[in-house]
Design a protein around this nucleic acid. Structure first.
Lengths: 200, 200
DNA sequence: CGCGGGGCATGACATCCGTCACCCGCCCGC
DNA sequence: GCGGGCGGGTGACGGATGTCATGCCCCGCG
């Protein structure tokens, strides 16, 4: 019997996924969490074989959750289940020690199989996503990412300069760099592109 | 036995919701659709009691799907199931003839109840969402919405003018109007606010 | 009929943005 | 120890953006 903990912030989806897994005779959902911190606590307490988790969750996001589980030396394998087909996410997930990366767009029948593969110590990664993951690395520097993230919220250059402790001119330089690297026409488009790729 | 058709673009979630509903003895999932057009065809063919549908779907979005079902004179009741707690969406859903509006954040146990309520001819609307729905109407005019939507994609004023067949100055006027009405500092923030409220 | 308001446009002005050239200081490798 | 990256900064320029005043046309409504 494979013991599973589920983490997903949308309660309805959490319950539905649990129902889906419970159908399988060899799987057992032993814990459910609505956020990352709760999931981590459950993993420590219940020592499940597999943790199935979303990426975007309040508090502790899925990627950090995966890293935390590994850091604590738990034998629990992590399977990421997410909406986003973003190469950057997959790469970071694997870096964080995740064993699998499944898309919510994938057929529901694949979930149980992926859980079994991961429980057996194998990897379960969406194949077409894996291809571009290693090709497309994020070209932005840390500072450029920070500036772009704030710009995406509508902050002006002086605002951003204040929040990052930089000068206005430097902020414009970073944004200009980012715009150039991403082939965008302005900061708005650049932010869209970066978000879509998972580079935030 | 209440006959249900499910429409949801994320295959994994679609399968999981079906599993959740199939648990109930009095509910039967007779059809599944991955997009709006498919859902409409299934409703015509199968004449289900209830159609449970997401809002954001490729092709025919959920709100138009609801309107189409009603326009065809089908007895099928529509229950919207979505991520977005946006007053604008709820209002438009009810205008489109939907009988219920449930959030994916709600506990999964509520889904079956909502389906039963809707099948019985009652309404099923998230109560706290209902409150603000009638208070906050979208203050933007049609033109302002169009301009803002394009601006949100990173288009420049001249670009937008071209796409809408307006002059550049007029586009700037509309955006300025929208920024003022929404209390934003610039077009980027205005777009964020409008998106969050469901005014697009 | 008159008049107000919405949609559209123009022109002008002050900022803000995107770009470029160039500068400094620091750390790292050769 | 010295030349280059690299992070950070300055200054300037042209174009984009946000605001305001003003004007036109058209339609609905009192």
């Amino acid at each position: 019997m494979i013991r599973v903990v589920l983490a997903e912030d949308q309660a309805m989806v959490l319950g539905a996924l649990a129902a889906l897994l419970e159908i399988e005779a060899d799987l057992e959902v032993v814990g459910r969490a609505a956020d990352g911190a709760q999931a981590l606590a459950l993993c420590e307490e219940l020592r499940p074989d597999v943790l199935v988790t979303d990426i975007e969750m309040p508090g502790l996001p899925g990627l950090e959750l995966a890293a935390a589980v590994k850091a604590k030396g738990l034998a629990t394998r992590v399977l990421i289940l997410t909406t986003f087909a973003r190469p950057g996410y997959l790469r970071r997930a694997l870096d964080a020690g995740a064993s699998g990366y499944l898309l919510k767009d994938a057929p529901s029948a694949q979930l149980a199989d992926a859980v079994r593969r991961v429980a057996a110590g194998l990897r379960a990664v969406d194949p077409e996503l894996a291809a571009e993951a290693w090709s497309e690395a994020c070209p932005l520097t840390e500072r450029e990412r920070q500036a772009l993230r704030l710009a995406a919220l509508g902050r002006s250059a002086p605002d951003i300069a204040g929040e990052l402790g930089l000068s206005e001119g430097t902020v414009r330089n970073y944004l200009s760099e980012a715009i150039g690297k991403l082939g965008a026409a302005n900061r708005i488009e650049a932010a869209r592109i970066a978000r879509d790729k998972g580079w935030l």
